[in-house]
């Protein structure tokens, strides 16, 4: 009985703390932005007291979930077309959309010296090349565009393996199951291991990553604050550190 009572008191205290705390918002984050978003959310909490609860996935997957009423208040996509479509469909707040980052595509291998440049793709001396699903993930689309620009898509197609998200494409290379893979530069931040080739911008359409306030977050204080924070200099410094280009600087 004593134990039960102390549990009840403890639970009551926790509830009291939670309600006294600032607001919370659910944010859908494109997988490539995972590490940067975590850092931004931590700083966001420290500065504003609000909590951003992050979910990570492929942009296409989130888009479908949002059209089906997923309880997200903010969407950080890896492209600009899906946020735009959500605004057009009345699922996102018009005027809230902005480009928070421009992504960079990288060809990456864990083996030093394997990736030297586009000649690596031409030589194709690897068995598997991992990308993420081009239909659901913008970095996958950029990877396909790159191979098409180099006229290598048909030759490389039999070697492609697809991850559901850019995180899985990365993990296929990380576990050694694929020798090379197209990943986001942000995923390689803080490590110089292996070999990499930052794909020149002219080979693929810029990956303009847009954020948007969703209709479900229109009245949510924390959601609005998160969007504002994402535009601020502190968040921009983090975004830049992860290898993204900021809008208006490219």
């Amino acid at each position: 009985m004593k134990l039960l009572r102390s549990i009840t008191i403890l639970a009551g205290l926790l509830l009291a703390c939670a309600s006294a705390q600032a607001a919370q918002t659910n944010v859908a984050v494109a997988a490539n932005f995972t590490d940067a978003a975590k850092e931004i959310a931590a700083l966001f909490k420290q500065k504003t007291g609000h909590e951003a609860v992050l979910s990570f996935g492929a942009s296409g997957q989130f888009y479908t979930q949002i059209t089906q009423g997923a309880p997200f208040q903010v969407f950080l996509s890896a492209d600009d077309s899906r946020p735009k479509k959500l605004v057009e469909e009345g699922l996102a707040v018009a005027g809230s959309r902005f480009t928070y980052a421009i992504g960079k595509l990288v060809l990456w291998s864990k083996s030093p010296g394997l990736v030297t440049g586009e000649e690596t793709l031409k030589a194709a001396s690897f068995a598997k090349l991992s990308i993420c699903n081009p239909a659901a993930a913008p970095y996958g689309l950029a990877a396909v565009e790159t191979m098409k620009s180099l006229n290598l898509y048909d030759a490389l197609k039999p070697k492609l393996v697809e991850g559901a998200t850019i995180t899985q494409a990365y993990q296929f290379v990380e576990t050694g199951n694929a020798e090379v893979g197209f990943v986001a530069l942000s995923q390689l931040t803080g490590s110089e291991a292996g070999s990499r080739w930052v794909v020149p911008q002219e080979l693929y359409n810029p990956i303009r990553q847009d954020a948007v306030l969703l209709k479900a977050g229109a009245g949510n204080e924390a959601a609005g604050a998160f969007i504002t924070f994402l535009r601020g200099s502190e968040a921009r410094a983090i975004i830049e550190r992860y290898g993204y280009v900021l809008d208006g600087q490219s």
Binding site: K128, V161, N177, A178
Partner: peptide, 13 residues
């Protein structure tokens, strides 16, 4: 190791 018998690198995929 098994995959190497027929020249492949991995059995995944």
């Amino acid at each position: 190791w098994l995959a190497r018998l027929w020249g492949a690198r991995t059995l995944a995929f």
